[in-house]
Write a protein that binds this DNA or RNA. Structure first.
Lengths: 101, 101
DNA sequence: CGGGATCCTATGCGATACTG
DNA sequence: CAGTATCGCATAGGATCCCG
């Protein structure tokens, strides 16, 4: 059961998943949408989500490189659980400082 | 939004909350119910949950000491979100090693 | 453009010993 | 019984530089 948290527990994973829930995105787009994230962390968290089967990674053999990320079928089943989390957070007394989603 | 995860994100917090969801418990009882937890971690996570307003801590002025923990009203509102998480975990390909809840 | 490799710091967590 | 205090390792996460 703790495994669900292992999967979404990274500092940026919930944010990433929330973005991918509504659209397919390229690496650079995600960086722009989440300014405070370092590129290392973005890469790392994407790789973990991918190896957990939550997201798909599609590489286009082009120059310049192009990589698109999207939720996998399994990943989509996670959305309701994530939304329950976000919804609860909205009702929680704000402590400030969080990214607004 | 990340704050919801800050609150339930500790290694043992989900387990603790799951136990408290169904009953009020004393410190020693919780230790017995979660054998692998160290007493330091149990104390620490309980303190954090308390300061986040998720659980209530009731101290009886007795000898020997007696302290009971229970979900606060706010804590109870968290249950649906937690259950969504657990439910998802149950459908996820098992990686083994987790506590069974 | 989308990374990989390194280095470094902060935090999490566990084990152990002591206390009102 | 229900903690507090201290130590030390392991991991997470940030900054920076390099590469096809």
């Amino acid at each position: 059961m703790v495994k669900t948290l292992n999967i979404i527990g990274g500092k940026w994973k919930p944010v990433i998943l929330h973005m991918l829930a509504s659209q397919t995105l390229r690496f650079g787009e995600m960086r722009r949408l989440i300014p405070p994230i370092s590129q290392k962390m973005l890469t790392q968290q994407l790789r973990e989500l991918e190896s957990d089967g939550i997201i798909n990674r599609k590489v286009y053999a082009e120059v310049p490189p192009k990589v698109e990320y999207s939720l996998s079928t399994l990943g989509k089943t996670l959305i309701p659980a994530l939304e329950a989390l976000y919804a609860w957070g909205d009702n929680y007394p704000d402590t400030g400082g969080d990214l607004k989603l």
